[in-house]
């Protein structure tokens, strides 16, 4: 029995629209023509081999990975603080502060980029480097981290930690033995999502990167050259595959967290 036949057809079509571009990636990444056009001409792994031998690309990738890892650690640590404060007792100004931290969700990225650039250069008088990129990435990752971790912390009965203390644990022991295991899946999700955000970000990196470009900045440089299009396709294939893998892992942990707390699953991220 097909329920909502037309709606279902429309929704499937919409999914096709959402996925169409990224489904084209592998198609042309393995196509042996140097222009991106139909019809496909033949199978090759040449473009991937070219990735393997491009030193500048490796440099950019290393850069991006370092930035992404540090970003996800810092953002998640701050996110844990904020999410725990969110579920804790209210004090004057708490809602305002939290709202302010979440502001980057609705700020155009270019405004964040431009204003950070001004501060880094004019006020703090720092050289642009990977550090400045990390600082910026934490600003935009933090709201996502908090949103994910809020879900994890909000599921907790405040009595859990009190019960642990009542049974002889210190405040820290209660956090470590009860809260941490219960929100751990959320922490993993947050780490992964912040990692992806950093790895994918182009705008902030373009403004704030130093002498060494990040991977997206490097890719952007490539897009100006027609002959490097197939290489971008190959690189894009790998990046999207990586994102999806991380995402699947993040989703797995999120669901496990929900199951662990003995709750009903009520939807995805955000």
């Amino acid at each position: 029995m097909m329920r909502g036949g037309w709606l279902r057809a429309y929704a499937l079509l919409y999914l096709v629209f959402l996925f169409a571009p990224i489904l084209l990636l592998p198609l042309f990444a393995f196509n042996d023509a140097s222009v991106i056009a139909f019809p496909l001409t033949g199978f090759t792994t040449h473009w991937f081999q070219e990735l393997w031998t491009t030193e500048a690309l490796h440099q950019a990738l290393r850069n991006s990975l370092v930035i992404a890892v540090l970003n996800s650690l810092i953002a998640t640590l701050l996110g844990v603080c904020a999410a725990r404060a969110t579920s804790g007792p209210a004090f004057p100004g708490k809602r305002g502060i939290l709202g302010f931290i979440m502001l980057p969700l609705v700020l155009p990225e270019i405004v964040i980029a431009v204003s950070l650039l001004v501060v880094v250069r004019q006020v703090l008088d720092l050289q642009l480097s990977n550090v400045t990129v990390i600082l910026a990435h934490v600003v935009i990752s933090l709201p996502f981290s908090i949103a994910i971790l809020n879900g994890a912390f909000a599921n907790l009965d405040p009595a859990f930690e009190e019960a642990a203390q009542d049974l002889g644990e210190t405040r820290w022991g209660a956090f470590r033995l009860v809260t941490l295991p219960l929100v751990f899946p959320g922490i993993i999700s947050s780490l992964l999502i912040c990692f992806i955000i950093s790895l994918d970000d182009f705008v902030l990196a373009q403004f704030l990167t130093g002498a060494n470009p990040t991977l997206p900045v490097y890719i952007y440089g490539l897009t100006r050259f027609v002959k490097s299009l197939p290489v971008i396709m190959a690189l894009g294939t790998l990046l999207v595959a990586l994102s999806i893998t991380l995402l699947v892992i993040a989703e797995y942990f999120r669901r496990r967290g929900v199951a662990r707390a003995g709750l009903k699953d009520s939807g995805g991220f955000l």
């Binding site: 009965d157 009595a159 859990f160 009190e162 019960a163 642990a164 009542d166 049974l167 009860v178 295991p181 219960l182 662990r260 707390a261 003995g262």
Partner: peptide, 12 residues
């Protein structure tokens, strides 16, 4: 020691 209203049984 306390028996909490929600029982606070550690779910993990």
């Amino acid at each position: 020691n306390m028996v909490f209203q929600s029982y606070a049984i550690f779910p993990h």
